[in-house]
Structure formats: C-alpha cells, structure tokens
Amino acid sequence: MARDLEEINASSMADIAFLLLVFFLVTSTFNKDLVLEEKLPQKMDVNQPAVKVKPWNVLQITANKNDDVSLQTIDDHFEYVPKGDYSLITEWVEEFYKHPSSDDNHIWPATTKLTTKMAMDSSNKYKLLSASAEVEFYQKMYDNKAKIWKKRSDAAEMFGGAFTLLSDKAVMAIKLDNSTKFKTYIEILDAIYAGINPYRDELCMEYFDRPYSSLNPKIEEEEKIIKALDIVYPKRIMKTKGIAGKE
C-alpha cells in the first residue's frame, strides 16, 4: 500500500508573505527631496546701466577652470581656499555679515543703523519722486525703491525698531569659469549659506524664541518673519563670469 504523501503545512506562508510586505514597505521610504535654493537675478533691462560694485564692499570668491578656489576680501587680502574644505569661506562670510558693535571699528562692508522712521521717510521720499517723475522708466525705478524701503521699515519694526542695514553695494561675488565644475560651485554656495544661517537663527531666537530653520513659509505670520530676516541678512550673491585666478 502506497503511503499517502503528507501535505506541507501552508499556514505559515501568509506570515512569510506579510513579513516580506512589511519589510519592503518599511525599507522603501520615500526619502524627502532635499534642495539648496538660489534666487536668480532679474532679467537685465537693456536701458539699465550695468551695476558697478566698489571693490571695498565685495567678498570675491573665484573658482577657476581647474576648480581652484580663492578669496579676495578687504584691502585686497588674497587667500587660497584649500581644496575640499571651504570652511574658510564660511568664516569670511561670517565676517561679512557681522554687525559692527560700538567697541570695534568694523568697516567692511559698509553698514548703517536703520530705524523704522528713517526707512519710512525714505519710502515716502521715493513715493513723492515717483509721483512727480515724467518718464516711465524713472517712475518704475522710484516705485521699486519706495517698495524696498517700505519692506525695510517693516523689518525694523519687527526687530525692535532698528537694524543694521548692509550697504546696497555690498555683495558676495562668485567668479566662475565656464568649465568650473558644478560640485565646486554648489559647495561654495553651501559654505556661504553656512555663514549666513547662524545669524538668521540667532536674530530669530532673540525675538521669536525659535530658530530660523524651523519657520514654515506656509504660515502667514512666519512667512513675514522669513521675509524680514531676508532684509536684515540678505543673500546678496552675484554670479559673475570671467577669467578666474589672479594670474
């Protein structure tokens, strides 16, 4: 008599399948997309004269075609940045945004102490100029300036009635060659942000008891704070093209 084949117990099969399912669900997390933001400058108006920056207000970062990075700062101070470690840039950016205190003679770059009233006065002045301007080009220009000063007055209001305004002419210029690698550029940008963000955090902590990085732009109240911080510590970065290097 042939012996009956024993049936394989399939009841644990479901457990195994569930285990697989759960494993894949857990491991395939949708990793959030992380990004680094950059605002491009507006399209150049043909009528608009090219902006000339005064060298004493500029933090110049140069990356040449071989991805060698160098810095040029106050009084033509020139330094090479070691490859792969851009913390030197962060340090200089910190210096760039440092608000002068009464006990040091910090002159680079130029800053002014701005109060709400001063900013409001400027805004009103430009409004009047815009109203009396006859050429449309100047009207637009004055309107823009009035808007900028209004924003500055709002920012001053938010941070205790006054803040230290960075000169309009103060910029961080990144000079690139066409064949500079993207990796070099983005790491320079990252190093610059690493210099600015702590200042924003600090100011935000002081007035709102929370760091800048925790603000949510979707909440109107917090968006206002972000915009105000943008005015006090603007990401004033300029990308320029040119033959890199000092030689």
Partner: peptide, 19 residues
C-alpha cells in the same frame, strides 16, 4: 549658466538644486 539665462528670460527665478 546658459539654462539659467533662459529661465531669467521668462522670469522663472527660483532655482533649487537637488542634493
């Protein structure tokens, strides 16, 4: 730079680099 010049042409000014 060439891509971004094109973007500026159409006022699309926010760029975010994936990283």
């Amino acid at each position: 730079k060439k891509i971004q010049d094109e973007l500026r042409e159409q006022d699309a000014l926010t760029v975010q680099y994936s990283s």
